[in-house]
Design a protein around this nucleic acid. Structure first.
Lengths: 258, 258
DNA sequence: GCTTGACCTTGACGCAGCGTCAGGCTCCGA
DNA sequence: TCGGAGCCTGACGCTGCGTCAAGGTCAAGC
């Protein structure tokens, strides 16, 4: 006959845990000795170990109770499912390790150097702080989600496009209409220039920006939303672009003919 | 500018989670718009994702807060440690998978067949239920802790020893003195027979029972405790054995000369 | 202008799975 | 017979949110 602490030691749990299991009816209350102490037999040890085996595998206590009462077939089926979950957990842990490693590798600063130096370039070119801020916020969100190496690749492309003059012209257009209202007459001309710029990119590379192709759709929607709120005329500009055969913004694509 | 639910969607958390982080000071409260709604910028997205990366890796929120404030070196060191923990968790999960698999493989009954049939043999030989019960309880605790295959090996050895007559004689002795008090005159003779039985086993195999050699010491202590409480004269019997040069019970060993 | 439904706000209680007192009785070895 | 360890019940505390409740707000359609 065992005392509660002997039972606890043997199963590798605390006395409090055992009393908790009694309270929730998971482990039956044993007989008491003459002074009210609980006295356990070997069956209790086996039961407790079974409970812990399941509980430590992450099974909620309520389900542990079900399972121990269940038929052998139901039990086997549940064990199958628990094992699937354990395998998934292992994979999740390994994914977390990768994400944590990225955090440690200097990405703890919001932005990689390739982006900050690009923003510095824009500043030197004389673009407005408003525009640079929108650009910066977008990149913070992108950098938070994808590998730093990919960010560097994207920035490389951007620098090239900027050097070619295409992107430089676009930024200049934006800086001019950044505070324009939806009925501003300059919007149409801007839409024309954007449209032909994208057309050129499509002829060149087969899409507006191949780097963006495997961006998470949710991220793309968010970036679109950021753009829509960055200037009052954004919504109207998208309409004008749609008239010219383009849909979307961050990941702009050819629209069906209306 | 984002609303709270946009922020939540993007980071893959609930609105409630974000408010919780505000409440505990983990994420700074953003500015409010004219009607009191919270409005977030891109930096909040990046911060929230960093928080979640750590939290999902099992870091308590209180430590997440520390870490985000910590110096890059302290942060890197902490990440190192978190990664060690994650690796340990992976190993633990895999160990759980093994234990769960054992539970599923029929060990859900308290005892493997090799043990129940051995107990049946004792019953047929006419030993008392008291004695069989002590034997049974011991095996339940052993079987709960070690691989079923090893239990089968142990039972095989026991059956052989029983067949040889050594063990049979011991059981008969025990059944006779199971209710004896510590001053019973028959104890000395029993101790003599046990002693010479063990002596023979030592000459034969180099130890009393090689199968028991790698049993967990805690388990051995527990089994000794079970034996000590199984009959009133147990303690006295151990003393008599110690006078004859043997120490312990479950894993009996030659004692130093006193 | 009005309704409807999706959001937003604060405040509060609920939950698992125990940890951790508090206050008192019991056991055992010296 | 004393002191320390172990047992008892009862109750509150903790983490990380989920989940009402009881309202105010926004955008769209009629």
């Amino acid at each position: 006959m065992l005392t509660i602490s002997q039972l606890a030691d043997h199963a590798g749990v605390t006395v409090r845990t055992i009393r908790h299991y009694h309270a929730v009816g998971l482990l039956p209350e044993p007989a008491r000795d003459h002074s009210g102490y609980r006295r356990y037999d070997a069956v209790a040890v086996a039961n407790l170990i079974r409970i812990r085996t399941l509980a430590e595998a992450g099974v909620p206590l309520a389900r542990v109770e079900e399972l121990l009462r269940a038929s052998p077939e139901a039990f086997a089926a549940a064990v199958e499912e628990i094992d699937r979950r354990l395998r998934r957990d292992v994979r999740a842990l390994q994914e977390h390790r990768r994400r944590i490693a990225r955090l440690a590798a200097g990405e703890s600063l919001a932005l990689p150097e390739s982006v900050t130096s690009y923003l510095e370039l824009l500043r030197q070119e004389g673009f407005s702080e408003r525009l640079i801020e929108v650009e910066r916020d977008s990149w913070i969100m992108i950098a938070a989600q994808i590998e730093p190496r990919l960010v560097d690749t994207m920035m490389h492309t951007k620098r090239r496009q900027f050097g070619d003059g295409v992107l430089r012209g676009l930024y200049r257009d934006f800086d001019e209409i950044i505070d324009a209202e939806a009925d501003d007459p300059r919007l149409a001309a801007v839409a024309d220039r954007i449209s032909s710029g994208i057309e050129a990119a499509y002829l060149d590379a087969g899409s507006a920006d191949p780097d963006l192709a495997d961006l998470d759709p949710a991220l793309v929607r968010l970036l679109d939303a950021v753009f829509l709120e960055s200037m009052p005329s954004a919504r109207r500009l998208l309409e004008l672009l749609e008239e010219r055969g383009w849909r979307g913004w961050t990941m702009i694509e050819r629209a069906e003919a209306p």
